[in-house]
Amino acid sequence: MSDFVFATAQYESGDWDSAPLLPANIIDTIARYTSIDVAPTGVIVPLSSPALFRYPLVYLTGHLPVRFTSGERDNLRAYAERGGLLFVDDHNHDVDGTFHKTATEELTRVYGALHPVPNTHPLYRTFFHFDDGPPTTSHELNGWGDNLVHKTLSGVERQGRLTLLYSNKDYSSEWNYHPDNKRFLSVDNTKFAVNLVVYALTR
């Protein structure tokens, strides 16, 4: 069995599958830079399913409003208590958009208030060093969304480790391409995902 399986959260209310190529891209990145035993394909796991607990790191994204069912909410609470880490990315990169507003409302109900993750957080030094905090994406200033560069991510910590990480930076767009196309990039823009996974596996 592989140590690490990339899991995408499927939730009832929105377009959870808006970045279908992201899992393969991140798996490829993990394999390229680390010796972590990673499964070659990702999985899709419903948020309300008991299977959620098989994947202590889960990725969630979308464009549409997010409204958790009570089953999804209860599952997420238990998931956080047991040590799971949920990574949420606003595929709209729009703080005035309904994904951001509704997702943060739902996440606050489950996890409590979100706080900015300081750019000195260990997450930014776990494998590669990101001295300026979360790397900027090429989509943040593409004219859509809020057209802002978000300097920090947000999150919730429990007993000194992140249990929720929330991004407005649209990594879903940034990383949503076939891994074979990495060869066309001068700089691999997925390296921050390595930090995220290594952080999850070591903290």
Partner: peptide, 27 residues
């Protein structure tokens, strides 16, 4: 090595009150 097993053994021992130190190769 960096894995779920390492991560959760660390968490379990820390939560039980042990002072835990570790070395977790990732590459």
């Amino acid at each position: 090595r960096a894995s779920w097993e390492s991560r959760f053994v660390l968490a379990a021992l820390s939560e039980a009150g042990w002072e835990v130190r570790a070395r977790l190769p990732a590459a």
